[in-house]
Computed example of a mutant assay.
Amino acid sequence: MLSPALPAHAQAPAQTPDNAALPQHVPLAVQTRDGLVESIHYGSVIATAPDESADGGLRTLFSAGDSLAPFYPRSSLKPLQAVAMVRAGLDLPADLLALTAASHSGAAVHRDGALRILEMHGLTLEALENSTDLPYGPDEREEWLRNGGTATRLTQNCSGKHAAMAATCVINGWPVRGYLDPEHPLQQLVAATVRELTVEEPERTSTDGCGTPLFALTLRGMARAFGHLAAAVVTNPGSPEAAVGRAMIQHPEMVAGEGRDVTELMRLLPGAVAKDGFEGVQLVGLPDGRALALKISDGGDRARMPVTVRGLEALDVDTSPLAGIASGAVLGGGRPVGQLTATDFITAT
């Protein structure tokens, strides 16, 4: 049966997955209602630390599920893409650099920020090649619609990144039109930067929802990259990695938005570099180079933060300030009757 979300001509050919090749995910979170398990979210998670004596210079602190299975990091790739642009000469105020790595809510501060990036480089909205969408944040979307707004490239949650991509092309004398082509110099630089930071060769490539090239990597590789970004702020403050990490730490409201759990996580956990991604992805890098990476297999967003907080707790991070985002209440008749919590998924390695 065709999906009602797409016209018939847009349907992709049916592909039957190879059951033998399915990732071996494990239960990471459960929802209970009056003591009965109502829902289970499966997934995989890994925590890593830099260690020159370990294989590949990276030590696995703990893991659960299939942390080496290829997956699409989705928007958690944005900080790595931002590093590539800084390496190519992009020089922005910290708030706008944070917006470059953002999946923003579409508030006025985000829309104005994307416009500022364009205007600083002599560009207009016509330069953007991302998909159109309404603001991602529920409150921001409601306000936008109430004022007669429609889906635009500016309100789409990746507009900061796309404005920065167009700006990077201007800085380097590259064609702005077609900057999303995988063969464009910008995307070639991004691909090389992703390979360097993850120390992985992508298993395959695809296209993200906003139109940018997307790489299939492992949770281990992404954890390595985020640990490096967060540690660089301390150990190599003049580097492009530090510039991106520092901007995200200083301006978490630009990375997501008010009321978003990723913004709250970075506010409550000083020095952490955190980014979510569609389909249940979460990355957190810590100042000492340790990192946590997870993927919820069903793409469910609600399980992402409880599992993240449980993983940070296992890393001996003081998670008491994160209590407000560590679990979710299940309501019955308007009163709490259950809870969404992480399982005891930690296995020492």
Rank of each mutant, 00 (worst) to 15 (best):
H9W: 11
Q11C: 10
A12F: 02
Q15L: 14
A21V: 13
L22C: 06
P23K: 07
H25L: 04
Q31L: 15
L36R: 14
H41N: 10
D55K: 12
D55N: 08
L58A: 07
T60K: 13
S63C: 07
A64F: 06
D66K: 02
S67A: 15
S67C: 09
L68V: 13
A88S: 14
D95Q: 14
A102F: 03
H104V: 11
G106H: 04
V109A: 12
A114R: 09
R116W: 09
E119K: 09
E126H: 11
D133M: 06
D133V: 01
G137I: 12
S159Y: 14
H162Q: 08
H162F: 07
H162G: 00
A164F: 04
G173R: 07
R177F: 12
L180G: 01
Q187R: 07
L189I: 15
V190F: 03
A192C: 08
V194M: 03
R195N: 03
L197Y: 09
V199T: 06
E201I: 13
E201T: 14
R204G: 00
T212K: 06
F215Q: 15
F215S: 10
T218Q: 11
R220V: 10
H228N: 11
A232M: 14
V234S: 13
T235F: 01
P240V: 06
A243F: 07
V255F: 11
G271P: 02
A272S: 11
V284R: 00
G285P: 05
G289V: 09
L292C: 12
A293Q: 08
D298Q: 15
D298N: 13
A303I: 14
M305C: 01
G311C: 04
A314F: 08
A323Q: 07
A326L: 06
A329R: 09
A329Y: 00
V330H: 02
L331E: 10
L331P: 00
G333H: 08
G333A: 11
A348T: 12
